[in-house]
Write a protein that binds this DNA or RNA. Sequence first.
DNA 1: GCCAACGTTGGC
DNA 2: GCCAACGTTGGC
Length: 174
Amino acid sequence: LVSDTIVNAKVAAAKGIPATSCWLVKSEPEAFSWDDLWNAPKRTTCWDGVRNYLARNFMRDGMKRGHQVLFYHSNAEPTAIMGICEVVREAYPDPSQFDPASDYYDAGAKRDDPRWMMVDLKAVEAFAHPVTLQRLKATRGLDGLELTRKGSRLSVQPVSEAHWEIIRKLGAKG
DNA sequence: GCCAACGTTGGC
DNA sequence: GCCAACGTTGGC
């Protein structure tokens, strides 16, 4: 007898999706900030507009209800992880791909075969001490974090549980 | 504003 | 299938 969890982990591994329950998403605060999310109805938003295949695969195949997601401000002053969200709805088609008026419109996406997916995220913990990029780079134990890898641009990325614990403590206690 | 790194496109 | 050109990301 093999549990669903193990089967799902094997399926995920076969697709190159890490078996983690911790993730990180980026947002430019000018477009959508942590405060925007915190003040949104139910502190929840759909994470639309992702147009990178690897990032999409992480959302579609990796993110499950209850998974924890760090919220990072890019192109910001300062650049920092602002808090923690939770996945409250698993992947479903991103409607903006079908909307010609949207910046995210994709003429190649078909309604019966959507190309882009999104999840819903709910803010659950605002960091008392946002963890700056500078801090992330300077913290021992965070080596190998995708966010700080030179040239990294992924807007949705996995985070190891060891890294997640360190970042959570920094955010809560400074 | 600059520019390195990256992903995608399209000619061949 | 290769790879140059292009547009984008995102730190600085």
